[in-house]
Amino acid sequence: MFIHLKDVSYTYNLNMPFETVALKGINLKVNRGEFIGIIGHTGCGKTTLLQLLNGLIEPTKGQIFIENVDIHKNKKKLKEIRKKIGLSFQYPENQFFEENIFKEIAFGPKNMGVAEEQLVQSVKKSLQMVDMDYQSFKDRSPFSLSGGEMRRVAIASILAIDPEVIILDEPTASLDPQSCSKLLSVIVELYQKYHKTIIMVSHNMEIMAKLARRIIVMEKGEIIMDDTPRNIFQKSIDKLEDIGLSLPQVTYTMYKLKKIGKPVSSGILTVEEAKEEILKLVNENKK
């Protein structure tokens, strides 16, 4: 296994008057090649968890192993580890600062000591992975891009250090629907074609249902569910409602039909599934 959080807790302002527990007793194993979605409402500890995952902050209790190495016992390894795990924050475009896209993407690898002649190769490859043309974009200012393009450049700048795991915090926030689906198809490609391990936080349950193979639900600093999307959305609709998460509209519709006694199966997540289920019932009713 690749990442292992063992009984990890994190408390802000430990032993101070404003001590706040952000995470408690987290046990989590992440394997190579997984696509994990993390959901939970604001303040549930998602961002703290992401920061722990690539060693940005140190747990106040417990251990974090990456490839069986306790990362905080081997400080020398920390830089190595950050190379393996790329973290993209919310609104990553706020961190742009270079005058052109080439420099923006080359910044990471350059800092990590990649030689000049390899930089071009690295930037080219990263842009290609997010489906952007090197020649037409390399000299443009990152600030001149559309919202969706900015997000893709931000991801490219992480890909440039060639990480195995990519962590994305709300990558689609405030993108229009089409930039959003373009970005998602890029993320799916990173997972399927380039075999990156993806860990993604999103409030959009429809996206989560479609993309993630495993969903982790967090509440008040704890992991309360860890299962396949189908199992989570099938078994736990009431629970998810309780903790203030909203479900795809079609999931609600089927749930409502079930509640008034219609024989639909619950846990329907996508338009295609809902359509199939409804047409099946309509045909049965005709007979």
């Binding site: 229009d176 629907p177 089409q178 930039s179 429809e206 795809p248 509209q249 079609v250 519709t253 338009v271 295609e272 809902a274 359509k275 409804i278 047409l279």
Partner: peptide, 15 residues
């Protein structure tokens, strides 16, 4: 226009 209809409207149209 780079927009879409709500998910429930997509389902209605499919049906």
């Amino acid at each position: 226009l780079s927009l879409e209809v709500p998910q429930i409207t997509r389902l209605a149209r499919e049906l």
